[in-house]
């Protein structure tokens, strides 16, 4: 070690530390204020995410290398078994798809609506998970697709099995998604068996959701499946979300305590899908921000207070 080099730094120099700290503290507070209120820092964040992208790739590389080596050295027998399994699964799905078409037509006839020939999912984009932050405060993933791929804020993300989450912050080449299990995430869901609508709140624990707004006498039991209700403006109706694992009815509390386990499985390839929906499709997500569907001649009625926020202008963080 170079002693003359080190001794220069062994004691404080220049401006007193107290003054520096005050300056930095004020700077931090101003940054927080601007970031929280003004959202002027969005463009800076966009740039920061661009800088973070290579770091994320580098941090993910050991895991990626391990997966790659596993795939390379996988045995022939294992691959054959997997192939057989996938073929079997494909046949099953084919059967389901055949029945789905006829069911969809029958459903449309029953409800006397014209279902467009196109599917509600307009296009999808596979994306790889390159980073994850899974703890009690945050359940977030980073994907390797961003604004250059057309990814937008509050876009639906699904994985094998069901709904995974939605995009939260989109960088140029990467985007951060908030999982259903994040304790700041609430998803409008429907109990498939009864049609009852409620909210599924993340718990901050892996694969765990809670349904805290159900009255005691609600008809819900273990094994009930939850699907998206189509409200909230991010997901269309009918996507699988979770299975109820536990229902506690405590006579003293007015609400039932219901726990559910999410169905989305991130497979070994760590691939998830970003979805784009056909606008104006009957099953497309409904949100207060886009007055789509319904009677187009109906106009919003002015409320008495003229200074009230106009309809269709809701704050961004409403669903998350």
């Amino acid at each position: 070690m170079n002693s003359s080099d080190a001794s220069r730094y062994l004691s404080t120099r220049g401006a007193p530390a107290g003054l520096r700290f005050v300056i930095y503290a004020v700077l931090a507070l101003v940054l927080m204020y601007l970031d929280q209120r003004g959202r002027w820092l969005e463009s800076i964040r966009y740039g920061l995410q661009a800088i973070a992208y290579p770091i994320e790739i580098a941090l993910n590389s050991p895991a990626a290398a391990w997966q790659w080596s596993q795939q390379v050295f996988e045995e022939r027998a294992v691959l054959q078994a997997e192939n057989r399994e996938l073929r079997q699964r494909l046949r099953e799905l084919d059967q389901l798809a055949l029945r789905r078409q006829s069911l969809e037509r029958e459903n449309a006839a029953l409800r006397a609506i014209a279902i467009p020939a196109v599917d509600v999912v307009e296009k999808y984009l596979p994306a790889q998970i390159i980073g994850s932050e899974l703890n009690s405060q945050q359940q977030r993933l980073t994907l390797d697709r961003g604004a250059v791929n057309g990814v937008f804020d509050r876009q639906a993300v699904v994985a094998a099995g069901g709904v995974l989450g939605q995009t939260m912050r989109v960088g140029p080449w990467s985007s951060e998604i908030i999982l259903l299990t994040d304790s700041e995430h609430a998803l409008p869901v429907q109990i498939l068996r009864t049609g009852m609508r409620t909210l599924a709140i993340g718990t901050g624990r892996r694969e765990q959701l809670s349904l805290p707004f159900l009255p005691l006498q609600t008809d819900i039991r273990r094994g009930d499946r939850l699907v998206t209700s189509g409200l909230g403006g991010v997901f269309p109706a009918g996507y699988p979300v979770a299975v109820v694992t536990d229902v506690k009815r405590d006579g003293g509390a007015p609400l039932a305590q219901v726990q559910a386990r999410t169905l989305a499985r991130v497979d070994r390839d760590r691939i998830v899908s970003l979805l784009w929906f056909t606008p104006n499709h009957p099953a497309a997500p409904v949100s207060p921000t886009q007055n789509s569907g319904g009677d187009p001649s109906a106009k919003p009625i002015d409320v008495i207070a003229p200074s009230a926020t106009p309809r269709g202008e809701t704050s961004q963080g409403e669903t998350s």
Binding site: R20, Y24, Q138
Partner: peptide, 25 residues
């Protein structure tokens, strides 16, 4: 203490903010 000073803490914290995606500062 003469090397990085308070500014080092500030910059390291800012890098964490940016990377973790929490409010800057």
């Amino acid at each position: 203490p003469g090397w990085g000073g308070v500014g080092l803490g500030f910059l390291m914290g800012l890098a964490l903010d940016a990377y973790l995606g929490v409010v800057l500062g």
